[in-house]
Design a protein around this nucleic acid. Structure first.
Lengths: 215, 215
DNA sequence: GTTATTTTTTGACAATTGTCAAAAAGAAGC
DNA sequence: GCTTCTTTTTGACAATTGTCAAAAAATAAC
């Protein structure tokens, strides 16, 4: 038995986990920064501010991030994992979107209007998120034209994405929508149970099952 | 016969029409400015710039503003009249939105990405519009944080509007969608032929007719 | 490996909505 | 007024999709 070695070992483990948290933290916010850079370059002053404004959130599987009826005061960056936004429609819970890392997520209607959310957001995998309050984001946008621009550009992208889904929902048949899912976002099928995919496509689970069996 | 009086008359008429154009022009851009103010207040320097950047367009009834396949390089403010955005879906032309003055209009996908438009925009009434090119708008956004902000806020509003329509298209029945049209946007029925309203609601004209007759 | 639990598929039938064709109603031109 | 053109409604039938119930398959728990 070697007490000192055992003690060293424990210290090392503690230090190790400490550093891994730190480095994980840094690596993580780096991912957020890198994602933002896709929209627009960032000046160094702003990078420091962003470090201060975003906080990490760990969300286990099948937990609520946003609950129907409560006002959503935060924007989230999904670094790892997957989420779904769902509606309560006459007692039935329907999925209307999925988010996969890396992406920004919130209950947009509630976040924008600051009215109670009509949708819920819950994790379908264990998630790592970074969150910023609406107040802080607004302050950042007031102070930095650059941030306002990033948010504007982000909205453009989210608008187009939504428009595409609207046109599909309105004018395409169930089979066509499934076909498009297969070609454009096949990863959804690999990470989400079919029941959720069905309501995401706006059809019943049985119909989706039959569409799938026909080829 | 009184030549001088007649000449005076002619001069007066010319002057009159000149002034009426000017005042009409001013009144019109005032409407645009006032509409923008709903999003955010404007400082005086910017107001002058906006006068220079926007140009008036008169569009008679049933004319194209944006044509499928051409890239849309302009944003429009609809001061008077009504427009519809339509898709060519396997030979059939379907309406996916209406715009009524006052509102901003463009083929968003094309305007944002600068790819060829998949939709057309045409007037369903005689229209007065004010147009600004994407280049000029970008320049304005670069120069004025304020303009960037207005655009960002505008996108928020348009996003919410679209989200609402998406949820309806995806999760509500034809009758429910018609009912919502009746309560939320009844003016559409008064200004648009039923065939267009039907595809706007994502149903056939015959089905819409039957829904209407049932109450 | 066996047992529970969850997810997916299948069958039978009903409801909704679409399609095609024709009639009726309304608006516009003369 | 009458005629022409457009818009809206109606009828008959087909196609699509939903609902309920049960079986089969897959996954998780022990």
């Amino acid at each position: 038995m070697q007490p000192s070695s055992s003690r060293d070992m424990r210290i090392l483990m503690v230090l190790n986990s400490f550093f891994s948290i730190l480095t994980a933290r840094n690596a993580a916010i780096e991912q957020l920064l890198q994602h933002i850079t896709l929209y627009h370059s960032l000046s160094t002053g702003i990078i420091d501010e962003l470090h201060d404004c975003f906080q990490q959130v760990i969300l286990p599987r099948n937990k609520h991030l946003v609950t129907e009826g409560k006002t959503c005061r935060h924007l989230y960056f999904l670094e790892k994992g997957a989420l779904r936004g769902s509606y309560n429609l006459e007692g039935k819970e329907v999925t209307h979107w999925f988010a996969f890392a890396p992406d920004f997520v919130t209950s947009f209607h509630s976040f924008i209007t600051q009215e109670p959310a009509v949708e819920s957001i819950q994790s379908i995998e264990g998630c790592i998120l970074w969150t910023i309050s609406k107040d802080k984001l607004t302050a950042l946008m007031n102070r930095y034209h650059e941030i306002e621009r990033i948010v504007r550009i982000a909205y453009e992208g989210y608008y187009i994405r939504l428009e595409d889904r609207f046109v599909n929902a309105q004018f395409k048949t169930a089979a066509e929508r499934y076909q498009q899912l297969l070609t454009q976002t096949p990863h959804i099928l690999e990470r989400v149970p079919l029941g959720h995919v069905a309501s995401y496509l706006g059809i019943s689970q049985e119909t989706l099952s039959r569409i799938r069996s026909k080829r």
